[in-house]
Computed example of a mutant assay.
Amino acid sequence: MCGGADVLAVDLPGFGGAAGSGRAGQTVGELSQALAGRLRGAGGGPYRVAAHSMGGKVALLLAARCPELVSELLLIAPSPPTPEPMEPQGRARLRAAHGDREALRAQYRHITHRPLPEQDFAQLIADGLRACHDAWTAWTDVGSREDISGELGGLDLPIAVLYSEDDPAISPGTIRREVLGRLPGAQATATRGSGHLLPLELPEVVKAFLTPH
């Protein structure tokens, strides 16, 4: 989340430094409310809000419910505002990967298109291992299935979307149909050579995308 030259990195409840605050059944609305609280607590704003994957869905709802906090949305391979298409087997694998180092390694290798630097991959696994079980399961079983598209009709701010044509987790078809198709006026940038983890796979592309023009 960027305000001027300052950057505020926010962990959603149940993940990263906020792992202890996750809870069973938490919804996208509760995640967006927690994010709003952090932004209000930081003062200033409105913010240019950048979000990746599940964070993209949370950021969309934040902008819809708290427009005074958001000046621009920068969404990277975002989860769609409608239920995320996921095969039952894939959903079960994701759910079962929590707390299992080898399952996490397999999961992250499955959704990436290029090898990650060893240090980045190790940090990715460490972050996955410390995630709250209840929050991990809540996203798989609740948040990813929610439909928040009915709240997005009043969005009136610049929105940019960066995605990969080679993403095996959230397909380019899903991005075009369920994200861009529901956000008239959003500016889309498609790239190739990356899977779902664009910030780690193509960091220079993401940096350019986030840089104000």
Rank of each mutant, 00 (worst) to 15 (best):
R177E: 07
A36D: 01
V49N: 05
G43Y: 08
H196T: 01
G16F: 09
R145L: 14
H196E: 00
L62G: 02
S53T: 02
S71T: 15
D156V: 10
R91A: 15
T140M: 12
D134C: 05
R130T: 04
A131Q: 12
E68P: 07
A51K: 03
L73C: 08
T174V: 14
L180A: 04
G56W: 02
G154E: 05
G195H: 10
G44N: 08
E178S: 11
G56C: 04
E178Y: 06
K57F: 03
L162Q: 10
S53L: 02
I111W: 13
T82S: 13
L31H: 15
D120Y: 07
G22W: 06
S164V: 08
G99Q: 05
H113W: 12
P80W: 07
R65E: 11
G99R: 05
R40A: 15
G45Q: 03
I159T: 12
W136I: 01
L155T: 00
P83G: 07
R182D: 02
P78R: 02
T27L: 11
A160C: 07
D11V: 12
S21W: 12
R105T: 04
Y108P: 00
S144E: 13
A122L: 06
L116V: 13
G45C: 03
P85N: 10
V205H: 04
G90R: 14
S32Y: 02
Q107D: 08
V49I: 08
A188M: 03
A126Y: 08
R40M: 14
E84S: 15
K207Y: 09
E68M: 09
S79T: 08
P199T: 08
T191I: 14
L104F: 05
S164A: 13
E201F: 10
L61E: 12
A96T: 09
H110P: 00
E118H: 08
G22E: 07
D141V: 00
A188D: 01
A169R: 07
T137E: 11
S53H: 06
G44D: 11
G14C: 13
A59N: 14
A5W: 14
W139C: 10
L198A: 06
V70M: 10
A59M: 12
L31A: 15
I159H: 07
L124G: 04
R40E: 15
R48M: 08
H52R: 01
L8T: 10
D6L: 13
G43N: 07
A64H: 06
E178K: 03
L61M: 09
G55F: 01
R145G: 14
E146D: 08
L180Q: 01
T137N: 09
A138L: 06
F209G: 02
A103D: 04
I159W: 09
R109P: 00
L152I: 06
D100G: 14
P158W: 10
L75V: 00
A19T: 13
R105E: 14
S171A: 11
L157T: 03
V161D: 02
A18H: 13
D141P: 02
R105L: 11
A103I: 04
G56F: 03
P78H: 04
E204D: 15
E178V: 00
L155F: 03
P203M: 03
A122K: 05
I148D: 01
A19M: 08
R95K: 14
L129H: 06
D120I: 07
I111E: 04
